[in-house]
Each structure stands twice: as structure tokens, then as C-alpha cells.
Design a protein around this nucleic acid. Structure first.
Lengths: 226, 226
DNA sequence: GTATGTGAAACCGTTCACAGCA
DNA sequence: TGCTGTGAACGGTTTCACATAC
């Protein structure tokens, strides 16, 4: 047994590779080199080889990777070979969009429950999922085997929601609220915060003259009068 | 003139600092040390000081940072002291949610236009914004001064949409489609891809027994039988 | 010849540790 | 004394370059 450290960003890249391999497969491409795949994914060829090497040897030297062999391997690594069961909290604009979107995805996840604080939303069916009151969470999470909680509530309620989800027994949380959640360490949390990303775009678009430094390249060079 | 390199991830952290400084200000806190702010934001104190140091000297040695001085400085750096004008393409589930959400945000951005391919969606008003046909994009982007295009269309159409937006004259793109966009280098692109993030969660939740390696810690240690 | 797999080097970002200053 | 600002050390990721295998 040998220890290998895998950067978590490499996992995100595997998702990208999987998606593009899927497209290539649909186009009938049978073999792909790290160089060609790198072009498509917008990364360095060596990076692809390194990322794959963390998990095994999937290629053939002098040839490349067989798409129909590599794709299932990556799927398995990422855990895409099962259907994950999600529970939504917060059936507002974003929450509803997520439910409706997932309805038409024949993929590796489904929403099997949805919850909301507001009485007027309870009882509705969105994207094929019934909206239940928060009080039902513990029971329904167990009954429906919810593995991952998706938080789409207002920032103020995000921490309370996370606590409820953890108590109900979810193993992971996907958090859309712009808040740093405090969770037990065995719970895996992923945050998606698009205000933050939008602000990064604003920064990059802000004319340097209005600041005390000047942006030079998209990678973040700056000329500072020091 | 001296060159300073600023990691783009530091910009994202500035957003987090700004948010929490705002909360502190509302609570009436006047002075904050990097140590206390670091606790709140979940980062290292030295990191905060470094991030701020990229842009100037905002603190007082032996004291800390005056909240009411620091906050506007960060706002200015991030370009939050103006209202950015966004245009949406794709008024489906996600797009509609974005429009409706933005309607109630009294912040640094507004949607001033929305577009869709589907005739049945055209003419609708969502979140106070009229949905127009793609053909009107070039005209409306100019007329309404759209600076940033938000792509919320199906992956298949994302690249075409990006091309249209660039041709219409936007300066930045926020892309929600799970596709690597090909854009001229002067256009700033931010991608938000939650399938990717979800898959990272799946990976972390996948029992190691089912793979040929074993995850050891949340930071990504792995035991590989090599 | 060609493309993978992988040590070594380069690069980048984070953290430390302390000088500088209120 | 206390906390910022910052050069230096550290750790982790990316890229290079080449041995290896088809």
C-alpha cells in the first residue's frame, strides 16, 4: 500500500474529461490522445496524464486512450455509476429551477424530497417532487434515503438548515447560500456562490484607472505604484 | 512602477471579507483585527493581511482595521461602487430564477435585457425584464448598455450564444452552461458549473472500496495499491 | 515513430515569523 | 504591548522532459 495525494481540483477536471469523452464517443471517436483531449478541455496534456495516473493506467503508449474504456473508468472513479438521492431545502426561485432541471436529467442523481419553511409552498409539486414542511425532514430523509442535502434558502437560514440536514442524517451538503457553513467534519460540503463569481468578473472588468493599481493580463498581473 | 501578481482566488476572498465586514458594520463593530476577521471567514490571518496588501495599506499597526474605512476600499477594488448592467440569454428555469432573484437585490447589478430562442417565451416579462428574440440582441445590448452577458442556455447552444454576445459587444460573460467556451482573449469569462461541483461531492461520498484506491482524509489522501 | 507514464523542475499560493509602527 | 505589513520558508500543483512501451 502506497500513499498518493490527489488534489481535489483534479477531481473537478475528471468531470470535465468525462463530459468531453462522452461527446467524443457520441461522435464516434474511438481513440483520443492526451494532446487532443487537452485542447478540447482547455488544459495541459501532461495534466490529463497526471490526473489519470492518480487512479491507474488507462492508456496505451504510442496510441492514446480508448474512449469506450476510459469513460466508464472515470465514471466509476467519480461515483457516477449509481443514482444519488438528493433532498432540496428551499423551494424558491433557485430551488424550483433545480428541481425542474433535474426532472429531465437522466443522470446520476434525482431529487427525492423537497422542503420549505413557508406554508404556502407546502403541498406543491415541482419537477415531480412534493414540497414538505421542515418538520417532516428527519422522517423523509430516512424514508427516501436522501444522501445529499441541497441548500437553496436565504443566507440567514442556511446554517439552521445545515444543522437540520445533518441531524436528519445526510452525508453531504451542496450549499448555494453565500455563507460559510459550520458542519461536523465527516459531512462533505460543497459551496456554490455566484455572487462571489460575479464580483470577480466585476473586478476584472473594472478599469484600472479607478484603482491604485493596474491590471495587466487576465491571469492577474498588476502594476502597482509602490 | 512595480509589477505585483495577484492570485485570482484572492479576489474571491475579498468578496468574502466584504460580506462579513458588512455584517460587522451592521452589528456596530468599528475595529476588527485580521485574526478575528480570519476566524469569521474561515481563513488564515496572514492571508487576509497579504490579500489586502496587494492593494495598499488599510490597517493601523497595533490596532487593526477600521470597518468603515476598509469596507468601501474593498468595494472600490472589486468594482462594487457602480451598478453593472447584465443581459441574460436563456429564459428557462435557471434564467428565470436569476431574473427574479436579481429583481429583489438592491445591489451592484441589474438585468437590463433578456433573450431567448423559443418564440413562446418571447414577450414575457420575468422579474421586471422583457424577453426579446435573439435577433434583437445586438441592438438591445447597445441601447441598454449591457456590459456582461449571462449564459443560461442548453450546453449545445452555449458557444453560439457566446459568439453572439461577443459580437453584440459585451465585455464579460458569466457562463452557467457546462461547456468550455472559446472566446477572444479580451473577453472575461467566469464559469459556474454545478454539475461539476455535484460530481466532486459524489466522488467524496463514494466508498473507497468500490474503487482501486482508498481515500484517507478530506484533503484528498489516497492509498493506492501500486 | 508516437503517445503514455512519471520523476524532476518550475511555478504559484499559503503560512510563518518578525520587523516596524501606533 | 499589540497588530499590521512583508520577506522568507514551505507546501502543493503544474509543467517539463524523457524513459518506456506499443
Amino acid at each position: 500500500m502506497k500513499f498518493v495525494k490527489i488534489p481535489s481540483i483534479a477531481i473537478a477536471r475528471l468531470s470535465v474529461y468525462a463530459r468531453n469523452l462522452d461527446l467524443l464517443d457520441q461522435k464516434g471517436v474511438e481513440v483520443i490522445s492526451s494532446g487532443r483531449l487537452a485542447d478540447i478541455c482547455g488544459v495541459n496534456p501532461a495534466q490529463i496524464r497526471k490526473d489519470l495516473a492518480y487512479f491507474g493506467q488507462f492508456g496505451v503508449r504510442g496510441v492514446g486512450y480508448y474512449v469506450q474504456e476510459l469513460l466508464p473508468e472515470i465514471r466509476k472513479i467519480l461515483g457516477l455509476d449509481k443514482e444519488w438521492r438528493l433532498g432540496l431545502v428551499g423551494a424558491g426561485n433557485l430551488g424550483s429551477a433545480l428541481l425542474r432541471h433535474a426532472e429531465f436529467i437522466h443522470g446520476s442523481y434525482t431529487f427525492v424530497a423537497a422542503f420549505d419553511r413557508k406554508p404556502k409552498r407546502i403541498g406543491a409539486t415541482i419537477g415531480g417532487v412534493d414540497v414538505s414542511p421542515l418538520e417532516a425532514m428527519s422522517r423523509l430523509v430516512k424514508k427516501n434515503g436522501v444522501e445529499i442535502g441541497v441548500i437553496a434558502v436565504k443566507p440567514t437560514w442556511a446554517q439552521d438548515t445545515a444543522d437540520l440536514l445533518v441531524k436528519a442524517g445526510v452525508k453531504g451538503i451542496m450549499n448555494f447560500a453565500p455563507v460559510h457553513l459550520q458542519c461536523p467534519s465527516q459531512i462533505f460540503v460543497e459551496n456554490i456562490d455566484f455572487g462571489l463569481r460575479l464580483e470577480r468578473l466585476f473586478y476584472r472588468l473594472t478599469p484600472p484607472q479607478s484603482k491604485r493599481h493596474r491590471v495587466h493580463m487576465k491571469s492577474g498581473w498588476v502594476i502597482a505604484p509602490k
